[in-house]
């Protein structure tokens, strides 16, 4: 990968991290409500994945979606305004944190029902193939999601009909307070692909370059051969399941979280770039400054954006 592209990935990971740190603060100030799930710790997965995509490829995700929409090119201002429930938000204040959409950028949400996005992703891939396009669809999900029927039905359809879709399991080890081993009969989740004779891979989700590499292969397989893949990225969430949950409690120890933080994907990538001399401390500072401004402007924009008008309640229920 070229140096410029590497730096772009770094910048995006940094943006997502700082954006979400600010999101947490704004939640604390009650500027943001509802369920709000932070992606902190998992940034390498979305950023590495999107780096392997074209702008016109489709991406669809679950409710932990701030990182995905930003990586796919969503405007931080409009994303923050959505979190604030303002008219200037990406979903006009109707969706909130769990339901971010930016169709122009190929980002189709933001889904709150565990596994609800998976059949929908399969349909987007079906449509691309139907129309003879070479677009690829990526469907992100947590590891807690793969026990739903929707997952299995979708994988079979995609394999049976050779659909250009990539199912991406972001295995952060816990579905709320349930560790993988208490929810899954198998540890190696990519094995699920075997039942459907589908290509599969497991990748270190804390390493943005490795994610990119594995994804690039899957994208090629989808684009050139119209074949699906199942990719498991092993990652970790540094924060609680949502803003209303503790970082650690009954289900994981503080020590475990601290240990995992030594694999911080952002710091890991930063060290790599420093080592390779692609970046120096001054440049890091410059990125931090630039991103600080972007995040500040997002909050200002969200603050100043008007509340949705009450008439909006009955708008967009149907196509008029």
């Amino acid at each position: 990968m070229k140096k410029e592209k590497l730096l772009e990935l770094y910048r995006m990971m940094l943006l997502i991290r700082r954006f979400e740190e600010r999101t947490a603060q704004m939640y604390g100030l009650q500027k943001i409500g509802g369920f709000c799930h932070l992606y902190i710790g998992q940034e390498a997965v979305a950023v590495g994945t999107v780096a392997a995509l074209r702008d016109d490829d489709y991406f669809i995700a679950a409710y932990r979606d701030h990182g995905h929409i930003l990586a796919k090119g969503g405007d931080p201002k409009a994303v923050m305004a959505e979190l604030f429930g303002k008219a200037g938000g990406v979903s006009k204040g109707k969706g909130g944190s769990m339901h971010l959409f930016d169709v122009a950028k190929g980002f189709y949400g933001g889904h709150g029902i565990v596994a609800g996005q998976i059949p929908v992703a399969t349909g987007m891939a079906f449509a691309a193939k139907y129309r003879g396009e070479d677009r690829v669809t990526v469907c992100s999900m947590g590891e807690g999601t793969v026990h739903q029927g929707a997952f299995h039905e979708s994988l079979n359809l995609a394999s049976l009909w050779k659909l250009p879709v990539i199912y991406l399991i972001e295995n952060n080890r816990y579905g709320m307070g349930t560790p993988l081993e208490r929810a899954s009969a198998v540890w190696d989740l990519s094995q699920k692909a075997c039942s459907y004779d589908m290509a599969r891979a497991t990748v270190d989700g804390m390493d943005v370059l490795k994610v990119h590499e594995v994804m690039a292969e899957a994208v090629e397989r989808a684009r050139k051969l119209s074949e699906p893949s199942l990719i498991e990225a092993r990652t970790y969430r540094f924060r609680g399941h949502s803003m209303s949950d503790p970082v650690h409690s009954h289900y994981r120890t503080k020590d475990e979280v601290e240990e995992q933080k030594t694999h911080d994907p952002l710091l890991k990538f930063q060290s790599y770039l420093l080592e390779k001399k692609y970046i120096n401390e001054d440049q890091i500072k410059a990125y931090e400054d630039e991103i600080k401004t972007i995040v500040k402007e997002s909050v200002d924009f969200a603050e100043n954006s008007p509340e949705p008008a009450l008439e909006a309640i009955y708008e967009d229920v149907y196509v008029e």
Binding site: G33, G85, G93, K94
Partner: peptide, 16 residues
């Protein structure tokens, strides 16, 4: 409740 899916924004939700 109003005959719509629930909106996220606080002011809309309260009105629904």
């Amino acid at each position: 409740s109003e005959d719509v899916p629930m909106p996220y924004a606080k002011n809309l939700e309260q009105a629904v």
